[in-house]
Write a protein that binds this DNA or RNA. Structure first.
Lengths: 144, 144
DNA sequence: GTGAGATAATTGAGCAATTCAATTAGTAAA
DNA sequence: TTTACTAATTGAATTGCTCAATTATCTCAC
């Protein structure tokens, strides 16, 4: 198929394809906890940031999405008892987000899953090669 | 934010992020033709494969999606007079897909758009660097 | 201190892309 | 000639997301 030649010569399409693959594998692992990709990232963020204060707007910035999107995910996580909203004592409009004990356990599992998928790719490609591409793809990510 | 350090050290997340960026920029350009990403790829595929015969199932394989998904997109493209379904004379269950004249024009425009986004990234990162990463990301794409 | 405008976040409707199960129709082969 | 398989479509359902409107709060010039 000649289209395949075209696609294989296109870095952006390869990146796109790889990302889809990554998401598919990841959400397979996250499915056990009924989490989507963004929810998983939120849990990871709260885990890594602890004990620093995290607010919804910061998450929206970090993950390049809208506040509405974050808010929906937070609500879903909160409904399952994984995270907690507390009114910011310094600004009553804002919330401080925190992991609840169960959420902490889930976060650890999630981070493990992300690492596992990552290691799977590393095995196929070689860790050094993956690291060498990192700078470039990061540059791409920043060049937005 | 410590989560950002984690994300920047994760090749897969960087790829994910880059891919999202790529899709956003691309669909901005495709929006003029009211095409989504997959529809654009289908048009490109039919353009590059011509005059070879292309069937829905092949497209599903090439783009790693379901036949149902392809079928919906084909219907949308057909409704707009861009592509045509012909019953395969060798197998009455199958269809042969072909670009109609208007679809051909659109395909050329679409391929131009994809190239344009690509060149935009190349400018930011440098074509040589992009090419050097291609082999690696392709390996990642294949490692599925 | 108060009113105008900005800001944090939520909410819910709505959309776009996809998946999934069921269906139609045709092939193959035993 | 019937049993199993395959190509593709269809429509409902799901998912993840955006957008506009809303609530509540803060800031600050006056």
């Amino acid at each position: 198929m000649r289209i395949e030649a075209f696609l294989q010569q296109s870095p952006m399409f390869c990146i796109h394809h790889t990302a889809r693959r990554f998401e598919a594998l990841t959400s397979q692992l996250l499915g056990a906890d009924e989490l989507n990709f963004l929810e998983a990232l939120i849990l990871a963020a709260l885990f890594f940031e602890h004990p620093a204060v995290v607010k919804p707007s910061q998450l929206a910035d970090t993950f390049a999405t809208t506040r509405g999107n974050i808010s929906h995910c937070i609500s879903s996580l909160e409904a399952r008892g994984l995270v907690q909203r507390r009114v910011d004592p310094a600004d009553a409009r804002a919330y401080q987000l925190a992991l609840k004990p169960q959420g902490r356990k889930t976060a650890i599992r999630v981070i493990g899953s992300l690492d596992k998928v990552q290691r799977g790719f590393e095995e196929k490609v070689g860790k050094l090669h993956l690291q060498s591409a990192l700078r470039l793809v990061r540059a791409l990510a920043d060049a937005s």
